[in-house]
């Protein structure tokens, strides 16, 4: 596009201020959500992500499927209302709640204190270990052995935090941050990275490709617990979700979902 050469920097600055004023206008009144609100609205809106298999993905009929999706559907069933899915990306989860676009987020939402400053978490419904995977020929037993290697992670995940912290202490670890798990896996298969941090579902994934048999779990970084996210101002809804998760733990539903999608049973889930 041809630039306008008459435009002055001043005009632009004025425009910027204008744009910012619009976006930063005073926040609206609170909209706390209760169980009754959802029931009277006749639907529950749940934020999901269909690019996070085996928790959220699309099935052979190109419909949303996975551990998180089925859990979300169970929530709607228990509340007696249909579920309206809102697809979000990983960084869009907190904004989706804060802007009231979704009543809750069910999308591999690891419970962390930092996130809990902005939103509230239910008790965990699943857990997942973050691990380091690499080809068998590479000798890795701990973070020290990663020195001199390129390590791929998904941006902003627990693995990213832990391995970035390790890289600060141990010089020579090069962290490459990708947008999704598929990209890191592809980077591994292309030989662009020497090791990767990811969820402990390497078997389901990497073994699928011809070269994938070559990869193995090197060590466990940390175990994360997934909770359902709601707005901070909705304690009643949060209490109902905690109760619901408790019942799913008791009747074995969560274990069934874990076996169905993750092929491994769930470890004991703590309560806070």
């Amino acid at each position: 596009m041809r630039q306008s050469h008459r435009r002055t920097v001043l005009h632009g600055a004025a425009a910027l201020v204008l744009g910012l004023l619009v976006t930063s206008a005073m926040p609206r009144a609170a909209d706390a959500t209760t169980v009754d609100d959802i029931v009277s609205a006749g639907k529950v809106t749940i934020a999901i992500d269909t690019t996070t298999p085996p928790y959220g993905m699309i099935d052979n009929d190109m419909q949303p499927s996975g551990f998180d999706i089925e859990l979300a559907q169970l929530i709607g069933k228990a509340m007696g209302v249909p579920v309206e899915f809102v697809t979000v990306t990983s960084p869009g989860r907190i904004p989706a709640l804060l802007t009231g676009r979704a009543d809750m987020v069910v999308s591999i939402f690891s419970i962390t204190a930092e996130r809990a400053l902005q939103i509230a978490f239910s008790i965990p419904y699943a857990s997942q270990s973050s691990v380091v995977l690499a080809p068998k020929s590479v000798n890795i037993k701990s973070a020290k052995d990663l020195a001199g290697l390129k390590v791929g992670v998904t941006r902003g995940t627990g693995e990213d935090g832990l391995l970035t912290a390790a890289a600060k202490d141990i010089p020579g670890i090069e962290i490459l941050r990708f947008d999704d798990y598929a990209s890191i896996s592809q980077a591994m298969l292309s030989g662009q990275i020497d090791a990767m941090g990811g969820g402990d579902y390497g078997d389901i994934y990497l073994k699928k490709s011809a070269k994938g048999d070559d990869f193995e779990l090197k060590y466990i970084l940390k175990t994360f617990y997934f909770g359902i996210g709601v707005r901070k101002d909705s304690p009643e809804l949060l209490q109902w979700l905690n109760t619901f998760i408790f019942t799913l733990r008791q009747d074995g539903t969560l274990d069934r979902l874990s076996m169905k999608y993750r092929k491994v049973p769930l470890p004991p889930l703590p309560t806070f």
């Binding site: 990983s90 960084p91 907190i94 930092e114 996130r115 400053l117 902005q118 941006r155 902003g156 990213d160 935090g161 941050r177």
Partner: peptide, 9 residues
Amino acid sequence: ANNLAMQTF
């Protein structure tokens, strides 16, 4: 910016 968004939310 995305890294910071994930760190600070």
